[in-house]
Design a binder for these strands. Structure first.
Lengths: 210, 210
DNA sequence: GTCTATAACCTGATAGAC
DNA sequence: GTCTATCAGGTTATAGAC
């Protein structure tokens, strides 16, 4: 009950007590994530923010610049959470896998549209993203070294791809699962909760293989 | 050499000897897949097909209807290839996994943009796709029964999700990998070729686990 | 069937009043 | 800072000539 009241209070703040600039930013985030850059009209954002269309350009100059701002933040969410874990030299391989699947699934449960949003926008406009993603830092991470010590025969890229795939792919399939009516939102969250424990165990099984 | 000549001959047919209707269809497929529905202009399609804009509406009435046509075909490619394998009662669990990763990776190598295209469009317009995907047929497949016999403790959904994730996810990450300059097209194909053998072995390891 | 020309509408952005 | 009104350009779709 207290939690629910807290949530409602938070919602109210979002709707009312925010600066105009912040209201536009949050509205833009919501609409861009839902429709993608191309299908979003600046009018949609203005309406969602409860302000006039002209104010959007007053604060952010253009649709493009507003989108850039949102995208930088989202790229940070999507890639920023991985690298620190993969490069933490105090964690064992098993601890890294547990932390990564755990914290990443938590983050994605809060923001389930994030992967497909980012991936779609990169797909439809790759130029915008050249040299913007810290993927090399992920490939050359401390985890890669640990993996090489344990299983020099297994290419780290396959391992990383599998770890990410098991964690992220269900969220990418989420719209399909719902559109097909396979199961409910609640069941989905529960299944992902299970995966937090299962993924590290599956990945360990891959490491022990053969 | 003969193969190359054959390919070039095919290309020429595509460019010249096709009916107007077919030329538009193929152009639409190309442009929709590259830019997505919202960012595609009918003018782009007309230009790509080498015809006039009016002809597009003459043959297909509207952008929307043309898109529907393409999408039905693509949904067939994406989902249609899975169900027959998963429901083939003459294949063992291991054979199913081998065939699925093998034939699916082959298909995706020919059409690497397919998953992200479909997933993006569903995400940005879920209503269009309600009750259009044979996902229930996949969940209730013969593979599910075999899996239940072997490992009643492992939910088939987790298993299927992992199998699909390992197979499809790399293609979803492909634009990221290229935009980040991690490695070349040729290396990507080679790595996916490796995975055709590796995925069934990994999945078997998951089945033996614990 | 295929084209040109144009209608009808929509979208991002700005000018100018308050 | 915020609004209304409007511009300039682009988009889908169609009318009508050939």
């Amino acid at each position: 009950m207290a939690y629910l009241a807290d949530k409602m209070a938070k919602k109210k703040i979002v709707e009312a007590d925010l600066s105009t600039e912040e209201k536009i930013k949050q509205a833009a985030q919501k609409v861009f994530m839902k429709k993608g850059y191309a299908a979003t009209r600046t009018r949609d954002i203005a309406e969602e923010a409860g302000i006039n269309l002209a104010l959007l350009n007053y604060y952010f100059r253009s649709k493009e610049k507003l989108f850039e701002l949102i995208m930088i933040e989202k790229l940070g969410n999507f890639f920023g959470a991985i690298a620190p874990i993969l490069n933490n030299e105090n964690l064992s391989l098993e601890q890294k896998m547990t932390q990564l699947s755990g914290s990443y699934i938590d983050m994605l449960n809060e923001n389930p549209e994030l992967p497909l949003f980012i991936l779609s926008e990169i797909r439809y406009n790759p130029d915008r993203f050249a040299n913007r993603m810290p993927l090399q830092k992920i490939v050359e991470s401390h985890l890669t070294k640990q993996l090489h010590d344990k299983r020099p025969d297994l290419h780290p890229l396959h391992f990383l791809m599998n770890l990410l795939a098991m964690t992220v792919f269900p969220f990418i399939m989420k719209p399909v699962i719902h559109a097909a009516g396979v199961f409910s939102e609640k069941t989905f969250v529960a299944k992902m909760e299970e995966r937090k424990q299962l993924i590290p165990r599956w990945m360990s099984a891959l490491l022990r293989m053969k």
